[in-house]
Design a protein around this nucleic acid. Structure first.
Lengths: 87, 87, 87, 87
DNA sequence: TCGGAAATCAAGACCC
DNA sequence: GGGTCTTGATTTCCGA
């Protein structure tokens, strides 16, 4: 089956409108996402003014996303590798 | 200078609270950001059900994002040339 | 599946050697890469002694890098459209 | 003093040649640098086929670049923050 | 559908 | 101190 959308040069007006609406929705959502990213950057900047280490804080956030088991696993592996390499 | 925040075992209760609040804010913002990302994925999925090619659509969106940036960059180069040639 | 490499304390001597060799290779390649970066910086410095503006030169180089990429990208989009429209 | 290079529209042929040569040298060096980056990626890919965890390996390489003292410092701070946040 | 490779983007380091 | 470079993370794309 070949939909209207598969035939750009035959696109009906309704289909063209639909396409524009999708693009508009996506771009609006992406704009909101970009704003949130900016907000997050702002918080990290504020965090610094309180004397916290933002790099370490970022690591905290990322560690908290992971399961503790997974976290321990990776650390153990890292220690093993470092141990092999240390001499 | 070593701030209170740099030495957790000397952290006052207020500072500890502050730290928790910052993390909470960041994690909330990141959760919202993740939701938007999910929404965007959803739109692309819906787009497909209308017979549009989501890959093409993604490329369109990304090109629309880049074009203004490129124009700005070329203008910047032009400005630099003008600057070099002026006086 | 858990490979030998995933369990360092069970790592045979051969595997430990392998790990060391990989790290050595990577660190050597990274050192070479760093040297090239230094060489490039040097050229830009030399460029200045000839009266050229290194900032402008950098921008030129970066634009020259991007232009083929952009062209390729636009062509890719065009190809996708053609693909959608063909059959 | 205004050098030849400062007046692009008055550039003598020799100066133009010099400029082209500089660009050529820079682009060649950057190409070599890009190749090394590709080589490094390749090694990490090969590493995986031996059962090593390339992500952890990357971390090893980056840790080995840092001073042990610095490393310990960051880890201590991380532990403190995580401790504050864990309840 | 999922995992891995690659591209893209933001953040930190570094040099001027 | 501004700007570039590099690195690390996120996202996207592809193959199994």
């Amino acid at each position: 089956m070949i939909s209207d959308a598969d035939r750009a040069d035959q696109m009906g007006q309704a289909t063209r409108e639909k396409l524009k609406q999708f693009i508009a929705r996506i771009e609006r959502l992406e704009a909101e996402k970009a704003e949130l990213a900016a907000d997050i950057r702002e918080v990290y900047a504020e965090v610094k003014t309180f004397g916290f280490d933002s790099k370490v804080l970022r690591k905290c956030v990322s560690l908290r996303k992971k399961e503790p088991a997974e976290r321990a696993e990776e650390e153990a592996l890292l220690d093993m590798y470092m141990d092999v390499l240390e001499d």
